[in-house]
Design a protein around this nucleic acid. Structure first.
Lengths: 146, 146
DNA sequence: TGAAAATAGTTGCATAACTAACTATATGCC
DNA sequence: GGCATATAGTTAGTTATGCAACTATTTTCA
């Protein structure tokens, strides 16, 4: 069924295309308009630290689905902006624990509000069931490839 | 309903997170394993040229949802690899028409096959209806934000 | 017709991604 | 104990993205 095959191939651009780009740009724009100087990638790291502070870089790799060099540089930049601080673990000297500063803690509520607002804008006319379907499909896609 | 709000915010990472990253990495890996030296971003440009050759850079911006500098540099790299060629338009001297070389034409079938295979792997256990829902939701998200 | 505005493309700067190769520390096992 | 291996993190090089500022054409319209 080559016709069906072709349509599946086109799905690459659905998953990696216009919608995710549009959402990322809008969220970044909303941060900027609120005077927040962080990137959405930096925000996604902070997001996991707000849930659980002082994670190792490896743990941040796992939770944000990034590789180690990406996390190294994101933490470099977050440290320059005084939003996190690396602390050597006492149990294992290979490990850096990445901990939030007070400045980063102050960003939690406002940025999560902005993310919620952005997703509310994005999801106008989309119902709960459809959202659940998208989440469930994406989970299966991820599981299929890892 | 703050609870619902919070869950919507989390959706950012659904749309921009693990699944799209995993699909992009797998497709890139499959290209590499087949000995193809192109990036998935370059491929996405070629994809639109296979459908319609000799588009302007602006038209490629529109179709790939990228901004002009991104396309300028993608075309720079594709030109270095002798996969496309810029030709000045005769009607409007501001416009570069981007045309495929024979080398690029030879890549069409194999790379589209690889993309189809990748999406088939990714979509195991996902049915047609669910795919249609994802496509339809992403279209609405895009429309809401543009 | 001619100045202002719009459009096409490029360049510079910052951030981020992936790969491969590297250092340092910890663990396993003979 | 000590060597091989695994794990945590960094660095270097290439590609890609976004924004702002820029040049060069074309269009608009008073």
């Amino acid at each position: 069924m080559p016709n069906n095959q072709f349509k599946r191939g086109e799905l690459y651009s659905v998953i990696n295309g216009m919608a995710s780009t549009a959402v990322a740009r809008r969220l970044q724009k909303n941060f900027r308009q609120a005077g927040l100087e962080i990137t959405i990638e930096q925000w996604s790291v902070l997001y996991h630290l707000w849930k659980e502070d002082c994670l190792s870089q490896q743990e941040l790799c796992n939770r944000t689905f990034r590789d180690k060099p990406s996390i190294t540089r994101l933490i470099d930049n977050l440290e320059k902006q005084k939003l996190v601080k690396r602390t050597a673990s006492k149990e294992d000297r290979r490990i850096n624990l990445v901990c939030l500063t007070d400045a980063a803690k102050a960003l939690q509520d406002i940025t999560i509000d902005l993310a919620n607002q952005t997703m509310n804008e994005a999801l106008i006319g989309v119902n709960k069931e459809e959202i659940e379907t998208v989440k469930s499909v994406f989970q299966r896609v991820y599981d299929n490839l890892t």
